[in-house]
Amino acid sequence: MIRATGLTKDYGSRRAIENLTFEANQGEIVGFLGPNGAGKTTTMRILTGYMPPTYGTAQVAGFDIIEESMEVRRRVGYLPETVPLYPDMTVYGYLKFMADLRHLPDPDDMIDETLEIVGMTERADGYISNLSKGMRQRVGLAQALLHKPEVLILDEPTIGLDPAQVVEVRNIIREIGKQRTVLLSTHILSEAQQVCDRVLILNRGRIVAEDTPENLQARLMGAERAILTVKGDADGLAALLAQIKGVKNVQARPDGGVEFQFAPGMDVRPEVARQTIQAGYDLLELRLMGLSLEEIFLELTRDSKISK
């Protein structure tokens, strides 16, 4: 469980985050989304006790991050942005070191278990310097999972992984997120969409939107969008569609299709199909295109830029 209230951080005179207030509950995976320099890493560093906030505070796993930092740190697993590894150690040696620092009762069992989860059992005795980027990322993740933390904070956990590994890591995170609290940051919107129960969009140190991916999408959709494709020449089709009641923003696309929008709750598709066929076109496809998170994201971050 994470509960942040009014977190603010100044680096000298630059304000990195401003008055962040948010929550992440047990069994929830929360995604931090935002452009470079939005303050994701800064927030995570504050939550993990790496540095204190300038103003405000937060409760992590039931403890105050300033007053009871040690308790917080015991209960948090953290994968920093730059994976913190000692190249001169073996994978096992590294995890053993972390297990010792965390005073784990039966380190060897927990190391084996964690290596199993991240799929690094075979490379346990290899030196970290000899691992690939993706493998290192997994060792870093293993370190964060090692002590079965109540709260898991992952700063861009899938960066640098190949697609198969990305899927694997997402599955691991989803699995863990069932019982624990997970906070992850990412630039990949589809990842947030797939993995997260809730998304926080950060821009210039402020939260600009916060909801489930679905709700975000719905809330932001001012219009539905569809694409119409016909066999052969589509000349005049755009003009035709523009006359239909409820159809807006008609645009012919270079690939031959025609794109249009309509108000949600006023589905014009049956009328569009009928008129197209009546006009003698061979209708190949009439497809609904959702407004993607990417667009929401861009819109939000652009807006707040303007508002600033």
Binding site: R45, T48, G49, Y50, M70, R73, R74, V76, Y78, P80, T82, V83, P84, L85, Y86, P87, M98, L101, R102, H103, Q143
Partner: peptide, 14 residues
């Protein structure tokens, strides 16, 4: 330099 300080400073270690 290697970023491991972040690991140690967020570990339960004074």
């Amino acid at each position: 330099r290697s970023g491991t300080l972040e690991l140690l400073l967020t570990a339960p270690l004074k």
